[in-house]
């Protein structure tokens, strides 16, 4: 399953909830969730720890828009909107953690 997160983990619990409940699959960080994938943020260790169970992607246009295009933490794969589409296809289902 593709888990789509769009909130900053520093102000909202949706990413934390996803990591607590979801078993495995892919995680795509979009909109304000891209802050989770930047080096030095307070959630970085938790996201890194989750990488054993999940493959983590970030929507690069959202990262660029927020001025953090050069701060992507290691191990996170960047995709564009076409890559987002591909992820919804390579996974059998998807869930937006709103």
């Amino acid at each position: 399953m593709l888990h789509i997160i769009n909130k900053s983990p520093l102000s909202n619990s949706s990413l934390e909830s996803c990591l607590r409940v979801a078993v495995s699959g892919d995680i795509l960080l979009t909109e304000d969730a891209v802050y989770a994938a930047t080096s030095g943020n307070a959630f970085e260790a938790k996201l890194r720890e989750a990488m054993g169970r999940f493959k983590v992607y970030v929507l690069q246009p959202d990262l660029d828009a927020r001025g953090l295009g050069d701060r992507l933490m290691a191990g996170v794969t960047s995709v564009d909107h076409g890559g987002f589409v591909d992820l919804t296809i390579s996974n059998n289902s998807c869930q937006s953690w709103l």
């Binding site: 769009n6 979009t30 909109e31 246009p61 564009d80 909107h81 076409g82 987002f84 589409v85 591909d86």
Partner: peptide, 19 residues
């Protein structure tokens, strides 16, 4: 919210890929 923008860009990308 960015939701409508994100949805639009997703739709456009899907169509561009032939979906």
């Amino acid at each position: 919210h960015q939701a409508s923008d994100s949805a639009y860009l997703f739709a456009k990308a899907a169509i561009a890929k032939g979906h």
